[in-house]
Nucleic acid binder design. Sequence first.
DNA 1: CGGGACGTTGAAATACGTCAAACGCGGTGG
DNA 2: CCACCGCGTTTGACGTATTTCAACGTCCCG
Lengths: 282, 282
Amino acid sequence: MISIIRPGVEGSELLARRLVAVRGRRLDRAQLEGLGLETVREFHEPGCEVFPPDPQRAQVQLLVSGIVGEVRRLADGRRQILSLRLPGELLVPSGSETFVALTPVRLADGLALMMRLAEASEAHQPLRRAWISASRVDDALLRDQVVRLGRMSAYERVSHLLLEAHERLAQIGLATETTFHFPLTQEALSDAAGLSVVHLSRTVQTLRRRGLITSGRGFVRLLDRPALVEAAGFVSRFPMPWRPCDARRDPAAPERQALSRQGGDRRPRLVDVGTGGADRAG
Amino acid sequence: MISIIRPGVEGSELLARRLVAVRGRRLDRAQLEGLGLETVREFHEPGCEVFPPDPQRAQVQLLVSGIVGEVRRLADGRRQILSLRLPGELLVPSGSETFVALTPVRLADGLALMMRLAEASEAHQPLRRAWISASRVDDALLRDQVVRLGRMSAYERVSHLLLEAHERLAQIGLATETTFHFPLTQEALSDAAGLSVVHLSRTVQTLRRRGLITSGRGFVRLLDRPALVEAAGFVSRFPMPWRPCDARRDPAAPERQALSRQGGDRRPRLVDVGTGGADRAG
DNA sequence: CGGGACGTTGAAATACGTCAAACGCGGTGG
DNA sequence: CCACCGCGTTTGACGTATTTCAACGTCCCG
């Protein structure tokens, strides 16, 4: 299976896929050349804050692999994850939030990309426009988060969150039609969903008992997507609804095997341990 | 007292004040000339959707007076107000959201402003930069909303919401040090706070019983701001903390009186009816 | 073999939602 | 002027969703 920790794809490729997905249009790969995105710069253990590595280093980073949470903390220690950041996304620090690695993470310097986006050069208008589309999608996702937290039950929130994660990962080729690697702690998930860990755990189990998902070893499988969509009132924020099996088979294929032997990441954090043998069948 | 329905100030003036507040810097008023903001175009009764008046009309509008809610609806009728829009703010429609008038509202065409912001003309760089600051503040406020809904109790949410409203209104001269006009239905407030109307009502009453606020006739008075700030863990998102009594006395003064005689707005919606005579004292 | 991180479970407390009725108020029509 | 009505708020009783606390199981690692 595909690993989000080691996707087997370059960061710029993931960025490109994302820009294509948010715009629903092709993008000339030349637009992303010469940005120095190949050289991965950081590696963080889960729980670490991602910014700032050094003050003088770039303040914008491209997430190449792993999952990062955009976090706000309250005085008494309560934590809210504002958004989950997935590979191919740019992390721009913004005052009141911190970026926290929720899994092992690799980053690339995003400064050159940021500067290319800022300059209004004629040659890079397609990139610029794609970027604007990406920002709009990000914005819509943040508003989804508001609605999730404000008006949805725990059951709906978790379903919605999983559907969103699945779609976003699918768009960049890091999910199959039903399955994706999502090695988050239940504590992280609960902070994203605005729930207590305990209640999140129970909610996930309800989803499993009802046969909507299975999960374990950091993988989630959506057994009945239509039912989940129905339960969560899920609406896609991408211009094109995702459909499986297009550009997703070829470039990501290399390390299907390597992962499961090694256990994926050193700290094998699981969404949950699964119901025994429920999640074989690949 | 100052009315948010008829502030006695032009829309461009409110916009200007806002741009000053979000940047913490002066702004040459010439930057806002020739935008056609003087001609107020719309008048909506509460509950009406603000967009679109006509397809061919401008799709961007400046809110000149009154309060607008940025609304998402779920399939079963649940409603979440993503953000409250106050006078001097620009309403840009965005697909999944609708703008709903929560009080009587006046609007001006914002298209010319939008276009001036888009063109990179050297002359209007200060405006452009101020606008970027405003966007950043908006963004921070939306994230505040996420935290409110995700990790705060009803009591904290309402306190926080009131403090935010007060500060934003104070920044544009529509609030005194303690008091502001806020003629929202409790239903609207509850949809903003992610609570049921009933529970919101009880929460507001708790705040009153504890002597933190009084309210009635659409006005809210913060009796003990420090206590509210403490209770809500409130943090300002403006570059300069607001302090009373600077530019707020002169230009807004004209129609102090007109309002209370007329009852403010025709449908005198109240935040609540107050505890009898608790809110005199000027 | 012990310890720590993570997930699960059960019981009890509580915050919040729902339902239904009453109230206050301003507006309207007689 | 009063009676009535509609809208918004308030209240009480009650049900439910969610949290909290505490304990236990498991896996991995030292």
